[in-house]
């Protein structure tokens, strides 16, 4: 368990945000933290509700995987899209 900041971009927002995540966070938890700064604030709530997919380097990451298991460097760029939406 360790603080792990990422560059979180919710697709459709015009800027990515600094998101203070944790190595123990799952992709679902990470997605919610990224979406928090954009959904219902700068982009509409997706029709399917607040469920999201995480893409890193263009690859969809399994929702149960933890951030710490991915071997990323701090401030890695993370894309979040509504679940099932096409890859960013």
């Amino acid at each position: 368990m360790a603080l792990f900041p990422v560059t979180g971009r919710y697709i459709g927002d015009h800027i990515p945000h600094l998101v203070a995540a944790d190595t123990d966070d799952t992709m679902d938890e990470l997605a919610a933290m990224v979406a928090r700064h954009s959904v219902g604030k700068k982009v509409p709530v997706p029709p399917g509700g607040p469920v999201y997919d995480v893409y890193i380097g263009g690859r969809r990451i399994d929702p149960g995987v933890t951030l710490g298991a991915l071997g990323l460097s701090p401030m890695a760029w993370v894309d979040v899209v509504p679940r099932g939406a096409e890859a960013p």
Partner: peptide, 9 residues
């Protein structure tokens, strides 16, 4: 809901 809660990059 129109105000920031974290920093940009």
């Amino acid at each position: 809901a129109t105000l920031p809660e974290t920093l940009p990059v």
